[in-house]
Design a protein around this nucleic acid. Structure first.
Length: 233
DNA sequence: TTCCAGGGGAACG
DNA sequence: CGTTCCCATGGA
């Protein structure tokens, strides 16, 4: 259901899904204890972490494994178009778990999911709405380890789902761009665990925002000369 | 612990 | 064109 403009419902959507409650000034102020982050963060004041629906987030990040953004978009559009409610002319919502459960593995394969089809199929069978609801009350550590037990969910996906789906701002997903950033700016490399623990120690409860600033900056820097943070100098 | 399938397109030279 | 890389996981 869509929220009509100017209504209380729309304000609620903005409040929840655009995380209107996040005080960016406070968050940036806390993160600016890190001198490197402090230098470039200000120009990224408009950057927000969104609060995604837990189910949509889980499936989306499982689909995102070893795919680039255009392809991820295509896969999500394909399953939404085929299994999700039409919420406006030609616009489809992400399918609920019961809706997506209608799909057979081969149907999903034909929609271009590749080997990810079996993970999505298994997620439909093993994760119900009540389970996701129950997980909302877990600590980050417990949430993380429960997510890790799900098919198609490893370290990186578990942290993305914790951050974007369950709104745990202390989560710090490490992908190839973050690895590059940590090496370039902090001379850090190592296992997933080591990098995550380094970040959590350094950035604390807003590590997720730090991750977004580093991620955005690193991608921008690889394209133009728009890199906001640089190492030393 | 390390290796590689699986999968398809985009970006690169 | 052919290569390499991409918001990795799982199983050997």
């Amino acid at each position: 259901m869509l929220a009509a403009p100017g209504t209380k419902a729309l304000r609620g959507v903005v409040e929840t899904y655009l995380r209107a409650g996040d005080n960016i000034r406070d968050i940036q102020s806390a993160l600016s204890k890190d001198r490197l982050l402090a230098r470039g963060m200000e120009r990224l004041r408009g950057l927000r972490i969104v609060k995604m629906d837990e189910w949509e987030c889980l499936v989306s990040y499982v689909l995102a494994t070893y795919a680039n953004i255009p392809r991820i978009t295509r896969m999500i559009d394909a399953i939404s178009c085929r299994y999700g409610d039409e919420i406006a002319c030609g616009v489809h919502a992400f399918p609920s778990r019961p809706q997506l459960s209608e799909a057979r593995e081969n149907d999903l394969r034909r929609l271009g999911l590749g080997y990810r089809a079996s993970y999505v199929k298994e997620l439909c069978e093993t994760v119900d709405e009540g389970e996701l609801d129950r997980m909302k009350s877990l600590s980050y550590d417990d949430l993380r380890s429960e997510l890790l037990g799900l098919p198609g969910v490893g370290n990186k996906v578990a942290d993305c789902v914790s951050l974007f789906g369950f709104g745990r701002l202390e989560a710090f997903p490490v992908d190839v761009w973050i690895k590059k950033a940590l090496l370039r700016l902090y001379s850090r490399e190592g296992t997933y665990r080591a990098l995550r623990e380094f970040a959590q120690e350094r950035f604390g409860r807003y590590a997720g925002y730090a991750q977004e600033y580093l991620f955005y900056n690193e991608r921008a820097g690889s394209k133009e000369g728009t890199c906001a943070f640089r190492g030393r100098g």
